[in-house]
């Protein structure tokens, strides 16, 4: 009852380390992370330069004040945000643009669900902590733009400036990242037989719509 899965190697993401970049504000939606007009593309390549475009540039493409424009954050890979980050449209273009800008992990007060799911599909942990912890971390990043932040996904801790704080990683997300099973396509394809059986049980699925066993 198993089909051939594909043999893509899925890396384990139990640890992310890098300097931080703070983006302050609640309810930062995916329209802000990547404006819709940059979605007129058929691949995700090159989306990195458009991350936060409308808050980074004015009408005449002059740079505005934004952490993504600051020299000191250009090598940063750990994004530190506040609450309900990534709300709104389901576009995977949002985490794709952040990833292509250089982000490997996001620490925040809370995340919109579809956004967090999209991040997971790219192997980007979305780690949460209370607002005080986040603000302290954001302030520290301001003062230490080159300072290293260690995100331990498995142990659910973040270490910076000689200090370790507890954070939360959603159980399924942690397991998926740590065990390297966040690429669900291969995982689920191996259950194709059980999927067909499920389809056959459902009254609304026509027999003709169910593929033959491979």
């Amino acid at each position: 009852m198993t089909d051939d899965g594909d043999d893509v190697e899925i890396p384990e993401v139990d640890y992310v380390s890098g300097s931080g970049v703070p983006i302050r504000g609640n309810d930062i939606d995916t329209d802000q992370i990547i404006p819709a007009r940059f979605m007129k593309v058929v691949t995700f390549d090159g989306l990195g330069e458009f991350a936060f475009f409308d808050v980074r540039f004015d009408e005449d493409d002059n740079q505005k004040d934004h952490p993504f424009n600051e020299d000191r954050y250009q090598d940063s890979s750990v994004l530190v945000v506040n609450s309900n980050f990534g709300c709104g449209s389901s576009r995977e273009h949002a985490p794709q643009s952040l990833m292509r800008w250089g982000i490997d992990a996001i620490i925040g007060e809370s995340f919109a669900e579809i956004f967090a799911g999209n991040c997971l599909a790219l192997g980007i942990p979305t780690v949460t902590a209370d607002s005080e912890t986040i603000q302290d971390l954001q302030d520290w990043v301001d003062d230490n733009p080159d300072g290293k932040i260690d995100v331990d996904v498995e142990a659910e801790t973040v270490t910076y400036g000689g200090m370790t704080v507890d954070v939360t990683v959603d159980d399924a997300q942690r397991k998926a990242l740590v065990d390297g099973v966040w690429d669900t396509t291969a995982l689920m394809k191996s259950n194709a037989g059980a999927v067909r059986e499920k389809a056959e049980e459902l009254p609304y699925v026509a027999d003709a719509a169910i593929p033959d066993a491979e």
């Binding site: 995700f44 389901s90 576009r91 995977e92 273009h93 985490p95 794709q96 579809i114 799911g117 999209n118 599909a121 790219l122 959603d170 399924a172 669900t184 396509t185 995982l187 689920m188 394809k189 259950n191 194709a192 999927v195 389809a199």
Partner: peptide
């Protein structure tokens, strides 16, 4: 419910999604 592009890939390839 709405899904992201990697999940679209999952549904296209397997007819299923992984969800909590």
């Amino acid at each position: 419910f709405g899904i992201g592009t990697s999940q679209i890939r999952d549904v296209l390839a397997t007819g299923t999604v992984a969800m909590e």
